[in-house]
Amino acid sequence: MPQPDWSEFRFDGIGTRWEISTPRPLSAGVRARLLAVVEAYDGEWSRFRPDSTVSVMGRKPGRHEFPAEAAALGGLYRSLYRLSAGAMTPLIGGSLAQLGYDADYSLRPAGPPRAAPRWEDVLDWDGTVLTNHVPVVLDIGAAGKGQLVDLLAAELRSHGHGSFLIDASGDLLYAGPDVITVALEHPYDPTKAIGTVPVSGGALCASASNRRVWGDGLHHVLDGTTGRPVTTAVATWTMAADTMLADALATALFFVPGAALERTFDFSWLTVFSDGSAAFSAGFEGTLFT
């Protein structure tokens, strides 16, 4: 981890805990700017806030102009939707709500699993403009938290902070002179690690089916073509230059083999499966414990 004398700024945002570490303390003005970036992002993309643009899309059809980050987010989702044959989709929100992971956090299924609507049938995503032809429940959580990490990093750099560690509850972006060592959480016991990985710069993201779990076999990683939780992979880790890409690919590994994703994206990866086996890329420099 970073130097022990680095200053830390902790806060809650988009439903998760954040820690930003820097060699010198962040000024009150910079802290306020960071919180404003988080609030603005949440106000556009949250499906849990009734005042968000995404919530408006869930109530009625319409044409919606989003901020600049929407173009990159949509392009990445479009690629992964195609590569996963529709299994990974930003239209998974309704399927999550159906199983109880709804805006009220009821955690009570409203009925059997329901597949997400086909993107091409209900949504046009053209750069920063999203047009929904019917009410749709977007959920961009598979890449959104990572994108917000990148937006906060850009804010830090704009104020002269070139070294930092942003930790968004396990999704990390590090910029600094040293190598840090990060533990890989055991998918069945968060108090233990299955290995470690050195990070010299860039993003390290993880996804696991033991996070956001409710009910018997219910978790947040759903196959958009069926609406059912994935049962093959149980945990993934990815390393990439930016956090949005690493975050999205950590989820994509539940649906698409890492070797296939490597043909399109520049990243390294590790996948742990429910039978206890693991697969990883040649570029993943982590060490797994025996």
Rank of each mutant, 00 (worst) to 15 (best):
P2H: 02
Q3F: 08
Q3C: 11
Q3M: 11
F9A: 10
F9G: 07
F9K: 06
G13R: 09
R17K: 09
W18D: 04
W18P: 00
E19Q: 15
I20V: 14
S21K: 13
P25L: 10
P25S: 10
L26G: 06
A28Q: 15
R31K: 13
A32G: 09
A36T: 09
A40H: 08
G43R: 02
R47H: 06
T53K: 04
G58V: 09
R59S: 11
K60E: 15
K60Y: 07
G62N: 04
G62K: 06
R63Y: 08
R63K: 14
A68S: 12
E69F: 15
A70T: 06
A71Q: 12
L91W: 00
L96E: 01
L96Q: 02
L99D: 00
D102E: 01
D104R: 15
Y105N: 09
S106R: 00
L107H: 02
P109C: 09
P113L: 12
R114V: 14
A115N: 06
A116F: 00
R118F: 03
D121M: 10
V122I: 12
W125D: 07
V136D: 03
V137K: 09
D139F: 03
A143Q: 04
G144Y: 03
G146R: 10
D150N: 00
L151S: 05
L152C: 13
L156G: 05
R157G: 08
S163I: 14
S163L: 10
L165K: 02
I166D: 11
G170H: 05
L172I: 10
D178V: 13
D178L: 13
V179C: 14
V182C: 07
A183P: 03
P190A: 15
T196F: 13
P198G: 04
V199Q: 05
S200I: 09
G201W: 04
L204Q: 05
C205R: 07
S209K: 02
N210Y: 10
R212M: 00
R212Y: 01
L218W: 02
H219F: 01
H219Y: 01
H220E: 00
H220C: 02
H220Q: 01
V221M: 08
D223V: 05
G224S: 04
R228D: 01
T231D: 03
V234C: 12
T236I: 11
A240L: 12
T243R: 10
A246P: 00
T251D: 09
A252D: 07
F267S: 10
A278Y: 12
A279K: 12
A282E: 13
G283P: 11
F284S: 08
